Simulated assay, not measured.
Amino acid sequence: MSIETVEVGGTIRLGQFLKYAGIADSGAHARELIEAGDVEVDGEPETRRGRQLHGGEVVTVITDAFETAVRVA
């Protein structure tokens, strides 16, 4: 799996990042992915929508429908 890089230009919350990167269609969809345990940050499961991402983290989302990994820059 290749890792795409998404520039955010500062700090961003995990839920916002999922929308910004095009992984989630909406805030509600981002919440569903996180609550379902489908989201990892740097290989660790993350259940906090408000988790601050500062850059360099790899956000991985694995569902039955798709799998993607995106680096925060």
Rank of each mutant, 00 (worst) to 15 (best):
R71N: 03
V8K: 11
R48P: 12
E67K: 15
T63D: 01
A24C: 05
I3R: 13
S26D: 02
R49M: 13
D38Y: 11
E67N: 09
D25W: 02
I3T: 15
E4P: 05
A21L: 01
R31T: 11
V70L: 04
G15Q: 13
A65K: 14
G56I: 00
E32T: 11
R71T: 01
V58S: 11
G55S: 00
E7I: 10
G37W: 05
V41H: 00
P45S: 07
R48V: 04
Q16V: 10
G27R: 01
G9R: 12
A21E: 04
K19S: 04
G15N: 14
T47C: 07
Q52K: 15
R13F: 06
T63M: 02
E44H: 12
T5M: 10
L33R: 03
T63K: 04
E40I: 00
E67W: 04
S26W: 01
A65Q: 13
I62C: 05
G50Y: 03
E4T: 15
S2N: 14
R31H: 08
R71S: 09
E4G: 06
G55T: 07
T63P: 00
D25N: 11
T68V: 15
A21S: 13
Q52I: 12
S2Q: 14
R51C: 06
V41Y: 00
P45L: 09
M1W: 10
E67P: 03
E35I: 01
T11C: 11
R13G: 09
Q16K: 14
R48I: 02
E57N: 03
I62S: 14
G56A: 02
R71C: 01
R51P: 06
T11V: 15
A30F: 03
Y20M: 11
L33F: 03
H29G: 08
V72D: 02
D42E: 12
V6H: 09
K19A: 06
V58G: 11
T63V: 00
E4F: 08
I3A: 12
R71K: 15
V8W: 07
D64H: 08
A30G: 08
G43R: 07
L53R: 01
R48L: 13
E35G: 01
A73D: 10
G56S: 02
M1Y: 12
T68H: 04
G15S: 13
E67R: 15
G9T: 08
I12W: 10
G37Q: 02
T63S: 03
D42Y: 01
I34G: 02
K19I: 13
S26P: 00
H29M: 04
Y20K: 12
E46M: 08
I23F: 02
T60P: 00
